[in-house]
């Protein structure tokens, strides 16, 4: 039994999501990611249950583990009630803990995700926040979002929100004492340590790639260099 496998089994998502895989491939058949990316959850689960540390390390450094969309359609259909999606979450967790995530293009995107999503939680108390949604980063949101961005206070007031207001309501200003509690939770439960680890490994990688922190952010957010697609 390998050390990486032992580390994985400490994760409750492995305890919940991996019983005994019979390798039937039903998860791959139902998986939206497997249709789009060069991705096969059946193979990934099989590698994990092989307990082969060398293969698991390759997996932790690979593009594959970042292709899943965590829709959990696999869980519904697995005849043994495994959850390949939960196995993926445990693999991603360990990949970030060991710094292996920067070895893959899709893994390096964690730097931007942590900045955007975890940043929004700590600053505003929301995972997504209108003031930080910029039309230039979201061309798919169309001319409608450009109009909303330009008239944000009026549009949200008209639509019944309480943008940056006191008291309850949509997009209210969450009181500072509540944001302080979120920060304490982050510090106590490992989220702050995760942000710091992601930043540390990412900045080492940025230096190796000859990029400033800003350039690295824009690179991982906007660019796809390798051929990931299943076609």
């Amino acid at each position: 039994m390998g050390k990486l496998y032992d580390k994985l089994t400490e994760d409750y998502r492995i305890k919940e999501g991996l019983k005994a895989c019979i390798n039937c491939g039903t998860c791959t058949a139902i998986c939206p990611a497997a249709e789009f990316y060069k991705y096969d959850p059946r193979k990934i689960v099989d590698i994990v249950q092989s307990k082969d540390d060398h293969e698991i390390e390759n997996l932790l450094k690979s593009e594959q583990i970042w292709y899943c969309g965590e829709c959990m359609s696999c869980l519904t259909r697995c005849p043994r009630k495994n959850a390949p999606g939960l196995v993926i979450m445990a693999l991603r967790n360990l990949s970030m803990e060991l710094g292996y995530f920067v070895e893959s293009e899709k893994g390096r995107q964690q730097y931007a995700l942590a900045k955007i999503i975890s940043g929004n939680i700590l600053n505003y108390g929301y995972c997504v926040y209108a003031r930080t949604l910029k039309a230039k980063d979201h061309p798919e949101a169309g001319p409608l979002w450009e109009w909303i961005e330009q008239n944000m206070d009026d549009v949200y007031e008209r639509n019944g929100a309480n943008l940056e207001g006191e008291g309850p309501g949509a997009l209210r200003r969450i009181p500072q004492e509540d944001l302080d509690q979120l920060k304490k939770i982050f510090d106590h439960t490992g989220a702050t340590a995760r942000i710091e680890a992601i930043n540390r490994y990412s900045m080492e990688k940025a230096r190796e790639m000859g990029l400033t922190p800003d350039e690295y952010f824009h690179h991982v957010f906007n660019n796809t260099e390798k051929e990931h697609l299943n076609q």
């Binding site: 994760d11 409750y12 998502r13 965590e70 979450m89 991603r92 967790n93 970030m96 964690q110 995700l113 942590a114 999503i117 975890s118 939680i121 108390g125 929301y126 995972c127 997504v128 969450i174 509540d178 944001l179 979120l182 982050f186 439960t189 490992g190 989220a191 995760r194 942000i195 992601i198």
Partner: peptide
């Protein structure tokens, strides 16, 4: 506040 669900499923915060 947020439940943290999007961060959890973007794998930027631990399960705990």
């Amino acid at each position: 506040t947020t439940c943290g669900g999007i961060a959890y499923h973007c794998d930027t915060i631990p399960q705990e």
